[in-house]
């Protein structure tokens, strides 16, 4: 099963073509995602450099760089044109380009086959990857416990189950499912 954190680690992976893309749903989520992605970097590293300039991103091959474009389409085209400079010299940490899901940058990428092929498989959309298949999860819960999340949670709140680590974890799943 895929999950967002592992996909981010793969996107930041050491071999890469020097560039990855992170898709976000809206600017509020983007601001959160900047910190979330940065937290995957090695602890000894400097904080990620945040910029809207491709030139500045290229100038710092040893730093994790977050490019948040002012003009997404122009930045994608610029990165496509300059992508070989991201490869040589090889970067130690990649440039992560933040693009709005279904936005102008995503459309521009369709016009830039070179860059698109480099970021292929390395362009996580955190929120989409995190999305659980609720029906599947509910069915699994019921198979495991013989109870619906609601019924199980009622018993849990009544103290009918021991407070073991497994059941504490299960109570989280039940609460999430119950809210559906």
């Amino acid at each position: 099963m895929r999950d967002p954190s592992l996909n981010v680690v793969i996107a930041l992976g050491e071999y890469q073509g020097g560039v990855a893309v992170a898709y976000y749903a809206d600017p509020i989520r983007r601001d959160w995602l900047l910190g979330e992605i940065e937290s995957h970097a090695p602890s000894a590293d400097q904080p990620a450099l945040r910029t809207s300039s491709v030139d500045e991103a290229i100038a710092y091959p040893d730093r994790l760089v977050f490019v948040v474009p002012r003009d997404e389409a122009a930045t994608v085209e610029e990165l496509d044109a300059l992508r070989d400079r991201l490869l040589m010299p090889p970067r130690r940490l990649p440039v992560v380009l933040f693009l709005l899901r279904d936005g102008p940058g995503e459309r521009a990428l369709a016009r830039c086959p070179g860059l698109a092929s480099i970021v292929r498989g390395r362009d996580p959309d955190w929120d989409l990857l995190a999305r659980a298949d609720v029906d599947l999860e509910r069915a699994r819960f019921e198979r495991e416990t013989g109870l619906s999340p609601q019924a199980w949670l009622r018993k849990w709140k009544n103290g009918e189950f021991p407070e073991t680590p497994e059941l504490i974890v299960r109570s989280y799943r039940a609460t999430a499912l119950e809210g559906e």
């Binding site: 793969i10 698109a116 498989g121 996580p124």
Partner: peptide, 16 residues
């Protein structure tokens, strides 16, 4: 399979 699924997502974004 998961690596293929990632590439599938990337391709999906390129379709017009």
């Amino acid at each position: 399979d998961d690596a293929v699924a990632d590439q599938r997502d990337s391709f999906r974004r390129l379709l017009s």
